[in-house]
Write a protein that binds this DNA or RNA. Structure first.
Lengths: 168, 168
DNA sequence: TATTGTTATACTCTATAACTATA
DNA sequence: TATAGTTATAGAGTATAACAATA
């Protein structure tokens, strides 16, 4: 039957373990797939160093900011405040972070990065840079910049927390 | 108290809920964030139609390919074969897909998309296109093409299943 | 013995809600 | 009453392993 033939011809064009063209041609699909792959890769690499996925983000936030309150850190990263507790617990256990009660409002904790935490931040920065390099390897410098700018625009459009970072 | 003042001044430079520049300047970080956001948005939209996240992918695979075996579909999409069972169960219950034993190898199931499934595929295609449009809205046509090409290169570099789709 | 599809299990991640201590 | 941090609970999602039928 002719149907059979058509189907087999198609099978040659689209080899067995191959994603449907329809999906691959959808930029949002690619974005989701690549994004999730990067997240998983990052989680793996960070775990090798005994770190959770968000440790780097938290340390980076504390490294740039002033003494922050837990709520401020959570909001900055888009994490629920309850999630931050466990992350800070482990960071504090490892001496990377300090929690102090705010004397002006004893409900609050002032969180700050320690010297040891800053050293760890440098390490994590290197690891995450390597992950970035690995994934961007197939792109030339110019294309990387275009990609970064496009992503930043997309991110800013649905989440204003990205906006300020655009400066540098 | 001066402490109070300092904090408020800083809050203007780096507004409260603002991501650290270090993270925003990392393309891999942006990629992961945007990618996950898209995945979540897609899951939401598809759920409104009573669909799981992978229903579209499975239907699209069946829509393009020949009669496929379950293993082939799973491999094409990068899903575990055990995960596909539940997905196909619900698709079959809704009459979107048919499973038949392969008479030549009775271990195998030949999966095919039904007429109703094809109609549903058209709907899901529209929904996912809308999601794509929403996220890409801040980009002009040229930038969108650059973005797509860059993502495709990245994806191909770590997963050969994307390669063939590059054609169109 | 190896493979296909299936089922069962367990584990990670995260979202939600309840709780405390302060305000 | 409301808020910051904490704790506890529950749910989604998925990875793993065991299983039955067939090769």
């Amino acid at each position: 039957m002719s149907t059979q033939v058509d189907i087999q011809e198609l099978a040659q064009v689209a080899p067995k373990g191959c994603l449907p063209k329809e999906l691959v041609s959808n930029t949002a699909f690619l974005l989701a797939r690549v994004g999730v792959a990067i997240k998983l890769a990052a989680a793996d690499e960070l775990e090798k160093l005994g770190c959770g996925l968000y440790d780097y983000g938290v340390l980076a936030t504390l490294g740039e900011g002033t003494q922050e309150t837990q709520a401020a850190v959570a909001d900055a990263l888009g994490l629920d405040r309850s999630m931050l507790v466990g992350i800070l617990d482990s960071l504090e256990e490892n001496g990377l972070v300090e929690r102090k009660r705010d004397p002006n409002d004893r409900r609050r904790h002032t969180v700050s990065i320690t010297t040891k935490g800053k050293r760890r931040l440098v390490e994590l920065r290197e690891v995450t840079s390597e992950i970035e390099q690995t994934f961007l390897e197939p792109l030339d410098e110019r294309t990387r910049k275009q990609l970064h700018e496009a992503l930043l625009r997309i991110a800013c459009a649905y989440d204003p927390r990205y906006v300020v970072g655009a400066g540098k």
